[in-house]
Every structure is written in structure tokens, then in C-alpha cells.
């Protein structure tokens, strides 16, 4: 069984001290340890941004891709070898700005992967510009007079996309986040977690969220009702819910693909006999 220490790497960590990314990394490692996953069977796919460095800091397979393209890369890794546990990590710029076009499709296909969005409501790596989740009015480097657009609602968005597992975590609640990631990995289908991730340098929201977040699980939330989940998604004020908003079982993408072989694609023999097909062309 792998230990937390064995999941460390030699790469030097360059996140700002206190960054919410640390908690997400730790929660991920704990989830892998507690679920007893073998590091060689886990793949982490990360986007471009501060969050994207996560792959360097965990001793499992990783692919640091280009900005916004975590979902297509992760989806195909899973299709190629469904015995792997595939976990995507994206920033809110990555996931909701440049890469948003992929979310509805990964969700409706119900690709069996986990998608964790490090939602710090800012572009971290490019030094603090507005993102699609930055609250209206906030002054950022690219909105010096205050944000003049309304933010999107990631939970409502994922529900509308028919994701089969929709959750929100908070980087300030490590145990709960670990629980969410474990549940997401166990979920057979597309598991979406939006993680409220304070960015201590450009938008420190620790206190804001500490004062407001509460766990849905503590209130006996029933995650099987989509309409109720939608209503819950709009609760954003003095009280902000974290936890699993919605979860159902549905066939996954692979289950639905015509002709998917009886074993992972990666194990298939490359040699095939085309004689019959060529004869059709005579």
C-alpha cells in the first residue's frame, strides 16, 4: 500500500505559502492512499495555471497539457485504458473560460473520470486577472475599475450539463475535500468537483468562505433530486453549501461506444486482417 510520503516527488514546490492548492494536493494524496490505489494506475491531467503544477508534486503518472484542454486529453486516456484512474485538474480560467466548451460534452458523455476545478476566482499564474467566476465589482489587474460582468455558477452549470456527480469542496476543509475526492473516484461516470480555492496572493477568500460554508452532508442532504440540487446551487450568501449536490448512475461513455472491445484498447492486438473489407472495394 502506498504511503503519503511515497507520493511526494523531488520537484521543488513553487506555490505561494498558504495557497489553497496545497490542500487540494494533500486531499488528493490522502484519497489515493485511503482508496489503496497503485500510483502506476493513476493518471493526473492538469491544465495551465498555478494548479497545473500539481502533477509535478505527486508521484503518479501525470500529463501537464495545454490551457483548457484537460477534459479531451483525460477522456481519451480513460477510453484507451479504462483500468486507469484518471483525474483532471483545471483552473477556473482553464475550465470556465478557454476550456468551457469541453465541459458539457464530457458531462453528457458521462466519461468515467474525475474533474477537479481549482476555483480561485482569478487567473493565478498570469498574475491576477478576472476569470468567469470573479464576483462583480472586484478590482483585478484587467478590471481596474471593477468587474463589469456577472460570474457563472459552476454547480448549476454542471447540473445543466447532466454531470452524474456534482460537488463543491473548499480548500479550507481538508477532511471534507478528501471525502469528496474519494467519492468522486468511486463514482462510475463523470464526477465534477468545483473547489473553492483561496489564492493568497491575488484573491484571499479563506476567511470569507470559512465564515459561510457548511457541509450538505451535515444537513442530511438528498443528492438524488436534480431540481432540488438546482435550487441549492443558487444558495450563495450568508450560507454557502459544500458537498455532493447531485449523484446518479448512468451508463458511461465506454459502455455506449459501439464495438468497444472486451479489454482496454491498449491491450488489443495491433494486427488485424483486412481481407473482408478490401474485398468490399472490388
Amino acid at each position: 500500500m502506498v504511503t503519503m510520503n511515497q507520493l511526494n516527488t523531488k520537484a521543488r514546490n513553487t506555490w505561494c505559502p498558504g495557497c489553497g492548492n496545497f490542500a487540494i494536493l494533500t486531499a488528493l494524496k490522502k484519497a489515493i492512499v485511503e482508496l489503496d490505489l497503485k500510483p502506476e494506475n493513476v493518471v493526473v491531467v492538469t491544465g495551465i495555471g498555478c494548479h497545473g503544477k500539481l502533477g509535478d508534486y505527486i508521484n503518479v503518472n501525470s500529463f501537464h497539457v495545454i490551457h483548457g484542454r484537460v477534459l479531451p486529453v483525460a477522456s481519451a486516456i480513460k477510453l484507451a485504458n479504462y483500468e486507469l484512474t484518471v483525474i483532471g485538474h483545471a483552473g477556473d480560467g482553464d475550465a470556465y473560460a478557454i476550456g468551457l466548451g469541453h465541459l458539457p460534452h464530457a458531462a453528457r458523455r458521462n466519461v468515467d473520470i474525475v474533474y477537479i476545478v481549482h476555483n480561485n476566482m482569478t487567473f493565478g499564474l498570469t498574475t491576477g486577472q478576472v476569470t468567469p467566476t470573479t464576483p462583480r465589482g472586484l478590482k483585478t489587474r484587467s478590471t481596474p475599475y471593477g468587474v463589469f460582468e456577472d460570474p457563472i455558477n459552476p454547480i448549476a452549470l454542471a447540473l445543466a450539463c447532466d454531470a452524474t456527480f456534482v460537488a463543491r469542496g473548499f480548500a479550507g476543509d481538508l477532511n471534507h475535500l478528501t471525502y469528496l475526492i474519494k467519492e468522486a473516484i468511486k463514482h462510475r461516470g463523470f464526477a465534477f468537483i468545483d473547489v473553492l480555492q483561496p489564492c493568497v496572493t491575488f484573491y484571499n477568500t479563506y476567511q470569507f468562505f470559512r465564515e459561510r460554508t457548511y457541509r450538505l452532508e451535515d444537513e442530511g442532504w438528498d443528492p438524488t433530486n436534480k431540481v432540488e440540487a438546482f435550487k441549492k446551487a443558487y444558495e450563495w450568501g450568508d450560507r454557502i453549501p459544500i458537498g455532493i449536490f447531485y449523484r446518479i448512475e448512468k451508463p458511461t461513455f465506454r459502455d455506449s461506444i459501439p464495438g468497444y472491445p472486451k479489454q482496454p484498447l491498449v491491450k488489443e492486438d495491433l494486427k488485424i486482417d483486412l481481407t473482408d473489407l478490401l474485398n468490399l472495394l472490388t
Binding site: V73, A76, N81, H102, G259, L265, I272
Partner: peptide, 28 residues
Amino acid sequence: PKYGIVVVQPESEIAAINMVIGAAYAGV
């Protein structure tokens, strides 16, 4: 499908090539 080949039409060419990269990374 008769030859165990998975064929998908994703949401864009961007998705298509990134999927191909993912599959190739996984060894296919």
C-alpha cells in the same frame, strides 16, 4: 467497430487532437 476501433466525433478539432494525444499517451 468490427475491428475494435473506437471512433468518436467530439465537439471540435481542438477536442479531437487533444483526445488523440491522450489516447497516444496511454499507449494506443
